[in-house]
């Protein structure tokens, strides 16, 4: 490894300060609060209380998994076909993918509430053709997952598309020349090559999905308590920082474990994760 010069060290200094002050210190604070009680003494009190939240943690993991899988199934074919298009068309399509992200998440979610509501547009249209549901689609687990998929889909499309558009065409052509079927070309050549994009897409969708809070409150009718909601209520309304911190800690641990499992798939890939 090259020895870093004074200048290069100075160049990264602001970032290091930033990282220490805004990432490392808060993380230490989370750990401190998680292992103390309200009086500031060392205690496992709030860690033990996590038992009450097992259903919440389970539900968050399940919804996170579900929305990640759905995002992947939607994004992969889209990214593949997009990468085959002309540069101009690509730019327009990517702009359209990003366009909703210019709007605030809260507004987007609130709009979905109005769409899915019993007297909302969707249910009214479906009722016309006899497919409406008497209570609409809001306040269901499906609505929550839909909200997550809608909000996080771009984070799956963009990394996969980036990798796809850089794929060496000649490799694919070689596979075709050597008599690979379309199935074989896709699953044994294109998919393995695009894996780094897939992994970072999964990371970027799974992490925010698992820790979602606002979407579940608004689209789930307050009946689906996710871990993000539990954390928010501990800090905002109950003022139990210790329990809030231990919930945050368990969430981080779960995410780290998931990431470790994901990374096993890309360990031997060149480039690794591109976040």
């Amino acid at each position: 490894m090259k020895k870093s010069s004074f200048f290069s060290r100075m160049a990264v200094a602001p970032h290091m300060v930033w990282a220490v002050v805004f990432i490392v210190v808060p993380l230490l604070a989370v750990i401190y609060y998680a292992f103390t009680n309200a009086k500031g003494q060392f205690s496992f009190e709030s860690i033990f209380k996590l038992r009450d939240y097992l259903p919440t943690i389970g539900l968050s993991m399940w919804f996170g998994l579900l929305s990640t899988v759905i995002c992947f199934l939607l994004a992969y074919p889209f990214a593949y076909f997009l990468s085959q298009k002309q540069a101009n068309a690509q730019r327009t399509m990517i702009l359209l993918v990003m366009l909703p992200m210019w709007m605030n998440l809260l507004i987007r979610t609130y709009s979905w509430m109005l769409i899915l509501e019993r007297n909302g547009i969707l249910n009214k249209l479906l009722t016309l053709i006899g497919l409406g549901r008497p209570n609409g689609f809001l306040n269901t687990g499906g609505a929550v997952v839909l909200g997550m998929v809608y909000n996080y889909l771009p984070y799956m499309i963009l990394p996969i598309f980036t990798i796809m558009s850089k794929l060496d065409r000649s490799v694919i052509e070689a596979a075709q020349d050597l008599g690979g079927s379309r199935f074989n070309v896709l699953f044994r050549v294109i998919f393995p090559l695009s894996l780094p994009g897939v992994v970072s897409g999964i990371t970027m969708v799974f992490v925010p999905s698992v820790s979602t809070f606002y979407i579940s409150q608004k689209l789930g009718g307050g009946s689906f308590l996710l871990i993000g909601d539990a954390i928010e209520s501990q800090f905002q309304s109950v003022n139990n920082f210790n329990l809030g911190a231990s919930l945050s800690l368990i969430l981080m641990v779960l995410i780290l474990i998931s990431m470790a499992i994901m990374n096993r798939f890309t360990d031997d890939e060149e480039g690794g994760m591109i976040i």
């Binding site: 109005l114 509501e117 007297n119 909302g120 609409g136 009946s223």
Partner: peptide, 21 residues
Amino acid sequence: QKPLIQSYVMDEVFNKMEGGN
């Protein structure tokens, strides 16, 4: 009461009651 509840709301109550939902 929970099985009878459509949703637990705060500000959302405006849209839901105004729209007859």
